[in-house]
Each structure stands twice: as structure tokens, then as C-alpha cells.
Amino acid sequence: MLTLETIRDRILEAVPDAGVEIISNPGPSGQDSLLVSSGHGLAIALFLRDDPELRFDYCSNVTGVDWLDKTVKEKVIVREDDEDVETQVERVVPGYLEVVYHLYSISKKHGPVVLRLRTADRNEGVELPSLTPVWKSAEFQEREVLDLYGIRFTGHPDPTRLLMWENFEGHPMRKDYCAPDDDEPGDPITARERKEEAS
């Protein structure tokens, strides 16, 4: 009987100062996930694959998720003239990109374990270790994440775009990506809608 808690403990046993955190899933599917610190990503992946009891030999799905900056309103108690005053403060939680791995075990027939790796931010620190050396199935999918989300994978054998062409600019799956206006000029419905919008 393996639960996510025991998996976490086993990981911490094998890879001592790794940061592993359980992210609970509020939905009815109950698929919780393990958030793994990016520095130890490769070691943890190797452990999950090769540990004889866990044996997650099959990395089924690799994908990216884009979490934008969030503005959180919180109540903060400020001390003012020897009196505690509650004021509302807006705080910006910086966004990040996330790579999600769905692992199964074919030899043990269990799974899925959801593994998450997060980047530092959405602009400069978008580097994550590639898990392609551990599971070859991640090769194309990590390239796709690189292409559509712009995460740089260190250690990937062929870090090029997968679906878009080489000179394409931007990463279309990011939430703040703006597609170029490619409406055909002769289309009467578009023209009418534009007119309505303008009026």
C-alpha cells in the first residue's frame, strides 16, 4: 500500500535535502501531486524510476502549465498609535511556469503519480532540468513544452521547437500571448463585427 506521503518520505530518505511537497487537489478526482524542487528533479526522477518498490518506469504525460501573476488582497494588522488597525493590502504573488509529469508503473501496475516542477518566474528564470535522460518519452513532450511555453530544459538532447517553425517568436500557450491579427480582409462578417465594436 503506497500513499503519496510514503512516497514523499521515501524520496526524502533517498535524496536527503530535496524539497518535496504534496500539493493537494481539491477536485473530486483526488489526484494529488508532488511538488519537487528543481535542483533535485533529476535525482528524484531517477529514484522514482529505479526504486524496486516504486518502479515508475513509464512517464506517460508531460505538459506545461502557465500560472500568471496573481494579485491577492489580504488583511494586515498594522500598529498605529499603539492601536492595532486592520487594513487591506494588495500583494502580487509572482507567477511561474510549471511542468507536470504523469508517472505510471508498468511492472507494478500502479499510478499515476503526478510530479510537478516549477520555474522561478515567467521571464528569466525559466530553466528546469530535463527528465529525458530518465524517461525517453519526455523527449518530444519537453520539446513541445519548450516550444509552447518557453521553458528551457537543461540536459535535453535536442532543445529545439517541436511544432512551431524555427523563427517563430513567442510561446503561444502562455496565457498572455496575443495572437497576430490574421483576419482575412474580405470577410464581411468580421467587417460587420468590427463596425459594431467601433460604434
Binding site: 500500500m1 500513499t3 503519496l4 512516497i7 494529488d32 508503473s105 501496475k109 500502479h110 499510478g111 503519480v113
Partner: peptide, 17 residues
């Protein structure tokens, strides 16, 4: 004899083998 279709959250990862 294996498999977990939609296991209850308690034994979500049990292999059943």
C-alpha cells in the same frame, strides 16, 4: 489481478498485485 481504475483516495497508489 492488477490495476486501479478509480481507486478510493486512501489506497490511491496501491498496486493491487
Amino acid at each position: 489481478v492488477s490495476g486501479i481504475a478509480d481507486p478510493a483516495p486512501a489506497n490511491r497508489l496501491s498496486s493491487g498485485v
